[in-house]
């Protein structure tokens, strides 16, 4: 094999390293853990990844644009509570018993509003997005608590719950929705003008501005998309649990962040692909599934989860450095040849 072909193959492997880590772990788990190697378990891994997976798309969009959105988890929680409140049949619900279309439209509108508020303070008031969305993280979930008085809601409209119970053949609807969202946003980032603008803005805001890109419009779009995605995740979360409770979705922001980092999105902005983020979300889901089915002292679980995430990210960084070196060597080789 020619040296340049080897370099290309290595570069491709490095670009998709999150998938290789995921594949290796799934093979190891399948071979070593009793009861793991079966389709229902793989199906669980896929369908359980949906909430962290969708939040990770939202987070990745913001991070690629050079911003941060810490409010995603709370927007999701608010959307879940709102869905259950509007569609629930238990005594603590609104009594409106709305169906799937109406509730989805409402939570998307609410999500868009939250995203607009975030974007307004970041873009127009020039406040750091970390601070603005931290405020959102604190406030939006609390809005949900105000709506329900801090109480849980049970038994929501069957048309919503059906999303969690149906599928096409052996593939659950959750998996189809998640894959579709990843495919759409992968296309959106890579093939549309707006998607490419997100990379340009994240890479260099000044350069993007000088190139005639309306940076503020891009950022408004990114924050609104991020919150709308989070709201959709919340609607699905209510479908999954057939209701809502005040702590729903708590802690998922950090898992989504972990998925984004494992997936190779640079925290500096301008770099990252959603395919890697998808692998990151599946990796975290597979670790959770393993912890759920094997017998072990429950107090060790978070240590194992933390160690595995750290190992995955460390390996990713080592390989990234190797890839940078590979690029440098191949460039140097090309320069020598041409001279």
């Amino acid at each position: 094999m020619q040296k340049s072909s080897r370099v290309k193959i290595l570069a491709w492997i490095f670009d998709n390293i999150a998938w290789f880590i995921l594949g290796a772990l799934v093979i190891i788990f399948s071979l070593t853990i009793e009861g793991f190697a079966q389709w229902p378990i793989y199906r669980n891994i896929l369908s359980h990844a949906i909430f962290v997976g969708i939040l990770a798309i939202a987070e990745a969009l913001c991070i690629i644009s050079g911003e941060m959105d810490l409010s995603t988890e709370s927007v999701m929680a608010l959307a879940a509570v709102l869905t259950a409140y509007l569609a629930g049949t238990s005594t603590d619900a609104s009594g409106l018993r709305m169906g799937a279309v109406a509730t989805l439209a409402i939570v998307i509108a609410v999500g868009a509003l939250m995203g607009f508020v975030n974007a307004f303070f970041v873009v127009k008031m020039k406040i750091n997005s970390f601070i603005v969305t931290l405020a959102g993280y604190l406030a939006y979930r609390a809005v949900g608590l105000v709506i329900t008085g801090g109480r849980g809601v049970l038994n929501i409209h069957p048309s919503i719950v059906a999303v969690a119970r149906t599928g096409i053949g052996p593939i659950p609807m959750f998996v189809i929705i998640m894959v579709a969202l990843y495919a759409v946003f992968h296309w959106f980032l890579g093939r549309t003008k707006f998607g490419r603008y997100i990379y340009y803005v994240g890479d260099s805001r000044d350069a993007a501005f000088n190139a005639g890109i309306r940076v503020s419009r891009v950022l408004f779009g990114v924050f609104i998309l991020s919150s709308v995605l989070s709201a959709v995740a919340g609607w699905l979360l209510a479908a999954r649990t057939n209701g809502s409770s005040p702590s729903l979705g708590m802690g998922m922001l950090f898992e989504a962040m972990a998925a984004v980092v494992i997936g190779g999105v640079s925290l500096q902005g301008g770099i990252g692909r959603l395919s890697g983020v998808f692998a990151g979300a599946l990796l975290l889901s597979s670790i959770s599934t393993v912890i759920s089915i094997v017998g072990m002292n429950p107090f060790y679980m978070n240590i194992i989860r933390g160690a595995l995430i750290l190992a995955a990210v460390t390996l990713d960084i080592v390989i990234r450095n190797a890839r940078a070196r590979l690029t440098y060597l191949s460039t140097a080789e090309a320069t020598v040849k041409s001279s």
């Binding site: 009861g35 079966q38 909430f51 702590s247 708590m250 959770s288 759920s292 089915i293």
Partner: peptide, 18 residues
């Protein structure tokens, strides 16, 4: 963790599958 309900759902689903 964090008394989060969907985690309990995931645990039950994984456990019942195996």
């Amino acid at each position: 963790q964090a008394w989060e309900a969907s985690r309990a759902a995931d645990i039950a689903e994984d456990w019942l599958t195996a």
